[in-house]
Design a binder for these strands. Structure first.
Lengths: 127, 127
DNA sequence: CGGCATCCTACCCGATACTG
DNA sequence: CAGTATCGGGTAGGATGCCG
């Protein structure tokens, strides 16, 4: 496979989608947003993800320089995640993607409510 | 799983990433761009993809209303793919994603050269 | 030419249990 | 609290071959 018509692995779009194209990563980024968020908060809000997967995704996002993991050597332990500038730069792009999807599929519900649920103390009962 | 903290499947960002987050779809969209492109051309340019996968991705993109498949009942058969407006609307977003990646990883090479290779008759020998 | 059918592999994702 | 370790299923992606 010598003369690839394009260098797949060096295409920025491919790289970006590789870093972000997983099932949960965009959501994680959007949920963290401009806050410092503890692992437990993420796990509580995104309780559809297993903790292992959440950990995995967070680690990969950290490796890709999209977020920062701060570990406090306390008891009980505390870990806070926050976006890097690189991660923050994604938010407007994700917004566009949301708009794009919503434009062509008005059934979608926005994720912002989720983020609110994070930053508000409330939430739990649904009906 | 009653009270999901957010409706995963109705989050527009999730939907968008589901429709686009695969390994090749963004590339396909960017390669087709504003042209009508035949299957063979796509397969030739993106010869790192197996034809089966290429077909699969094209079908899914068609199902998601991102591109259109036109089949000409000729001999030899001819099939042309082109983006819908929904697909075209993605291009600027992908551009932003490219810029984002390139900004934080200048090693990336742009895909535009690829597209050129499609729309120019030339190309083949690399060295 | 532009597929589809078949088979196979890798890995993403998840459940569960255990640890500092 | 915030993980790791282990096991395993489902599916995206790929190689190959046949067909209208």
């Amino acid at each position: 496979m010598n003369r690839e018509k394009f260098a797949y692995s060096s295409c920025p779009l491919v790289k970006a989608m590789t870093a972000l194209g997983s099932k949960w990563k965009p959501i994680i980024v959007c949920v963290i947003r401009d806050k410092k968020v503890r692992f437990g908060q993420l796990a509580a809000i995104m309780d559809v993800i297993s903790r292992k997967v959440l950990t995995d995704q967070l680690r990969e996002l950290e490796a890709d320089g999209i977020l920062i993991r701060e570990e406090f050597k306390e008891l009980p332990p505390r870990v806070e995640y926050s976006l890097t500038q690189k991660g923050l730069d994604l938010l407007p792009i994700f917004s566009l993607l949301e708009e794009w999807e919503t434009k062509y599929d008005p059934q979608s519900e926005v994720i912002h409510s989720v983020v609110h649920s994070l930053h508000e103390p409330v939430l739990t009962e649904k009906d």
